[in-house]
Computed example of a mutant assay.
Amino acid sequence: MKTVVIGKSGQLAKAFRILNPDYIFLGRADVNVFCRNSIDSTLKSLNVRNIINSSAYTLVDKAEKEIEQAYALNFLAVRNLAEFAALNKIGLVHISSDYVFRGDSVKPIKAYERHQPINVYGLSKSAGENAVFRYPNERACVIRTSWLYSNMSTNFVTKMLALMKTQQTLKVVEDQVGTPTSVWSLARACNIALCKNLNGKTNFTDAGHCSWYEFALKIREFGIKYNILGNAAEIEPILSNKFNSLAKRPKYSVLDKSEIENKFGVVPRHWKEELEIVIKKLTKEDKEL
């Protein structure tokens, strides 16, 4: 069965391209996800049986001003894909975010807890999740993840490594807690979801949790260990209210993964283990640092 990945330029799609070279990858030049006619003609001509929607507007701060653009990609495009998938009995895996929650919990957030986003990005992702289930489809699911990073493209890990090479000191937020997640882990989880016809909403991240500050310290440690960094910048903790950002961020967004673990046997590795694997990958290839 042909599987199409929407959003071919993103870091998750790049992981799929390596893990699943038989997948079909579509970007803006290949299909207009804002137009149902374009979706219909393109995907029907490919005889698609599964869709993985990895496209998203992810610029959290800019979304506060670019509201229309955020909703276009995170809601309208998702609605169009969900309607097409339901009408044609096609499997759909849509990637969502921990930002759909308020982020004031003290324990891992379960998959079906109430959405209470606190910024435009979270609101648009919440609208996208709801759009997936507007059209009955037994093979549609939302996989919610957090703090996604990779050895490809621009993300927190590659940004931190680049800054650590040129700065003496970096200040990183210590009062926001979540779980870093490797795109390689998420791609494998998506493949299992397709194979087992996962339905409904579920959470997937790597195991464990940390603050952004703790994440940065571990990036620095592995960067030095694998000779990516020489005299690396020192990392200092800072409270989020001292950090200049347009959008509010969740304080605690650790996701409960018991459903996907118990029902489908998807047991993630600890985020530190996955991070070391990704840092190792950076030593073996060209990187944008």
Rank of each mutant, 00 (worst) to 15 (best):
C210L: 12
C210P: 09
C210H: 13
C210E: 14
C210Y: 10
C210F: 09
S211W: 08
S211A: 13
S211T: 15
S211M: 12
S211Y: 10
W212D: 11
W212N: 15
W212H: 15
W212S: 15
Y213M: 14
Y213T: 15
Y213N: 15
Y213P: 15
Y213R: 13
E214Y: 05
E214D: 15
E214C: 12
E214W: 03
F215K: 12
F215H: 14
F215P: 03
F215V: 13
F215T: 15
F215W: 11
F215R: 12
A216P: 03
A216I: 10
A216F: 03
L217P: 02
L217K: 11
L217G: 08
L217N: 13
L217A: 11
L217V: 05
K218N: 12
K218Q: 14
K218L: 14
K218G: 07
I219C: 14
I219S: 13
I219V: 15
I219H: 07
R220S: 09
R220C: 07
R220A: 09
E221I: 02
E221C: 02
F222V: 10
F222G: 07
F222N: 08
G223R: 01
G223A: 04
G223Y: 02
G223W: 03
I224T: 07
I224L: 13
K225C: 01
Y226K: 02
Y226T: 04
Y226R: 00
N227Y: 03
N227H: 11
N227A: 09
I228W: 05
I228P: 01
I228L: 15
L229E: 04
L229H: 06
L229R: 03
G230I: 00
G230V: 01
G230F: 02
G230W: 00
N231D: 07
N231P: 00
A232W: 02
A232N: 00
A232S: 08
A233E: 00
A233V: 02
A233F: 02
A233P: 00
E234G: 01
E234D: 06
I235R: 00
E236I: 07
E236M: 06
E236H: 06
E236D: 03
E236L: 08
P237R: 03
P237F: 01
P237S: 06
P237N: 04
P237Q: 02
I238E: 05
I238T: 11
L239T: 09
L239P: 06
L239S: 08
L239D: 05
S240C: 14
S240G: 10
S240L: 11
S240N: 13
S240Y: 09
N241P: 05
N241Q: 10
N241G: 02
N241E: 10
K242S: 14
K242W: 04
K242P: 01
F243Q: 01
F243V: 12
F243T: 09
F243C: 10
N244D: 14
N244W: 05
N244Y: 08
N244V: 13
N244E: 12
S245V: 12
S245K: 13
S245I: 11
L246Q: 12
L246K: 13
L246F: 05
